[in-house]
């Protein structure tokens, strides 16, 4: 890997971070809305008596933070600085909790859910896809799994509603909502871990169900290509066992483009996971976002948007950088 490529990729990452912060800053301002004003109107329409100290505190923090008396370019520079330090301001609905605190609480849930679901669907999908291209696959693999491709056309959170109805409402095998039982206090213990697992199975499964088709399709077409290669013919001529040819010769070479697919699908997957969390009231970033949208909590919305865009870009950067380690044929070289 050359230094040139490394620098180019890192520059791209910084550019995405910068663009994300910039649209966060300019879009809401362009429409000329005042989040504090809106929040107060919402509270008044709900008949809530807002104490004047609270309002004064909010406005003071807000003005000091964003220096609204300063010229626009000054505010913009300040904003970029704040974003770079992950300082997203305070939540309007949960004043004085900072947005960063709320996100810190939510992130482990989302990452856990996404990681589990992605790994499971990647593993199953890749193996199934490889088997489907392999002429010697069992009959049921080649007949049942194509149905999953149709599922991948349907948004996963809707699949979630159906799963929830069948496995939590009709037959209460799994809980209806949340990330852990309400009577439990989050702690590091076996019982709590099992409780979390029970709550995670359905949301994870709805992501897995929708994604298997995506991975299987990619793997199938790669396997078809690989099967025509000379080294497969040579392996067969050597009289190697079928399973060895399948795993060591065919799959190992076909799996590499799947890693690129993993990086490219990340954005779509995370958008879907946010909606799955909303359907399952799972305590991750998606639920924080839903609460924020309901409460006109602008700084929280902006924080979530910035953080998710940044983490997707960062993960892609990491995948791109470790890719040459996985595939020795790849050299990042500038011509």
């Amino acid at each position: 890997m050359t230094l040139d490529y490394l620098l180019k990729r890192i520059f791209q990452f910084i550019l995405i971070a910068f663009l994300a912060a910039t649209i966060n800053f300019f879009f809401p301002r362009m429409s000329g809305q005042d989040p504090i004003q809106q929040k107060l109107m919402l509270l008044q329409s709900q008949g809530v008596n807002v104490s004047s100290e609270e309002v004064a505190g909010l406005i003071e923090t807000y003005n000091a933070k964003f220096g609204l008396d300063q010229p626009l370019w000054r505010q913009y520079i300040n904003y970029l600085g704040n974003m770079a330090r992950f300082d997203f301001g305070v939540s309007i609905s949960n004043y004085p909790t900072t947005v960063a605190t709320m996100l810190k609480r939510a992130i482990p849930w989302t990452v856990g859910l996404l990681l589990t679901a992605t790994l499971i669907s990647f593993a199953i999908g890749t193996i199934v896809g490889a088997l489907m291209a392999w002429g010697k696959a069992p009959f049921w693999v080649r007949t049942i799994f194509p149905a999953f491709f149709t599922f991948s056309a349907v948004p996963f959170y809707l699949m979630g509603i159906i799963l929830l109805y069948i496995f939590a409402f009709q037959w209460p095998i799994f809980p209806l909502f949340g990330g852990y039982s309400t009577q439990r206090i989050p702690e590091v213990s076996w019982g709590f871990a099992m409780d979390v697992l029970r709550h995670t199975i359905l949301p994870a499964f709805s992501i897995v169900l929708a994604q298997i088709g995506f991975w299987a399709l990619g793997m199938r077409s790669m396997m078809v290509t690989v099967q025509g290669e000379d080294y497969i013919l040579q392996a067969e001529a050597k009289g190697l066992k079928d399973s060895r040819i399948f795993y060591r010769y065919a799959m190992r070479n076909a799996i590499l483009p799947q890693i690129t697919g993993l990086a490219l699908s990340l954005g779509t997957t995370i958008s879907g996971a946010i909606l799955v969390e909303i359907v399952f009231s799972y305590p991750g970033v998606g639920s924080v976002l839903l609460q924020a949208v309901r409460g006109f909590d602008w700084f929280v919305i902006q924080g979530v948007v910035f953080l998710v865009i940044l983490s997707v870009a960062f993960t892609m950067l990491v995948i791109d950088l470790i890719y040459p380690l996985l595939d020795p044929r790849i050299h990042y070289r500038t011509e």
């Binding site: 791209q12 958008s271 949208v293 919305i301 979530v304 998710v308």
Partner: peptide
């Protein structure tokens, strides 16, 4: 190339909350 790596839903959220 750059925009397709960004989760579209989140960008659309920022645009949508900006509609008065």
């Amino acid at each position: 190339d750059i925009l397709r790596t960004v989760p579209a839903l989140l960008v659309l959220i920022i645009i949508a909350i900006s509609v008065p």
